[in-house]
Design a protein around this nucleic acid. Structure first.
Lengths: 109, 109
DNA sequence: ATACTTAATCGTAATATTGCAATATATTAT
DNA sequence: ATAATATATTGCAATATTACGATTAAGTAT
């Protein structure tokens, strides 16, 4: 026990949960907002700007990369990260469908 | 260590992260989809329909309630859950702003 | 009151996450 | 080749999450 029983849920449910989990940390939201702000890619400026240790930032970046939410390219001695447009679109679509399924009705509990 | 350093992030970043964390589990997504499907409220049908123990479902419901994503009303011997429209709208707005901030540019890494 | 039904809570084991110092790796500059 | 810079990885401690059996609480029926 103590392990999410992914086998009893649909691919889509697991996929959306995984994507949301990757987003569900203030540091990772801050990292993404930082990337979104300067549309051009960014690297270890994050370490200076967020107040977290370099190892911690690197770990969060790795998680975002694993989820394919961002992608990084080596640029000389530093690494440039940017949004993965495919996954971003996927999140928009999946979340749009999920959130949009709610039709507010009068008779509720 | 081992504890999220919420103090270095903005209220909004922490709030969005908390909401997404509450959504970021396939069981909770399944529960919400079940509630969304029959717009009217639901109770322990969830225990029968999802393949998880009653205690586990109850715990997931509690988390969704804590995040104010759902609300429950006692209805006789059972409990009826439904979406909290205020929080749902909040998620839509916050996620919309967050995801919408991405403008796909040609020159990226 | 007793039995029954439904849901919440408690306790616990297994696993995952978060954060960071220390170290390793890789690229650039001298 | 050596030094400097930037990022990744490792190891570890603290904490959180997930799942479930067992129990409790609270309402309904007999």
């Amino acid at each position: 026990m103590g392990l999410t029983r992914t086998e009893i849920f649909s691919i889509e449910q697991n996929q959306l949960a995984t994507l949301l989990k990757a987003l569900a940390h203030p540091a990772r939201i801050a990292i993404l907002q930082r990337i979104l702000a300067s549309n051009t890619c960014i690297c270890g400026d994050l370490v200076d700007e967020l107040g977290l240790a370099q190892a911690t930032i690197s770990q969060h970046l790795k998680e975002l990369k694993n989820a394919e939410i961002i992608q990084g390219t080596i640029e000389g001695v530093s690494v440039c990260y940017c949004i993965n447009p495919v996954t971003w679109k996927l999140i928009e679509n999946q979340m749009g469908a999920f959130l949009g399924a709610y039709k507010q009705e009068a008779n509720c509990c």
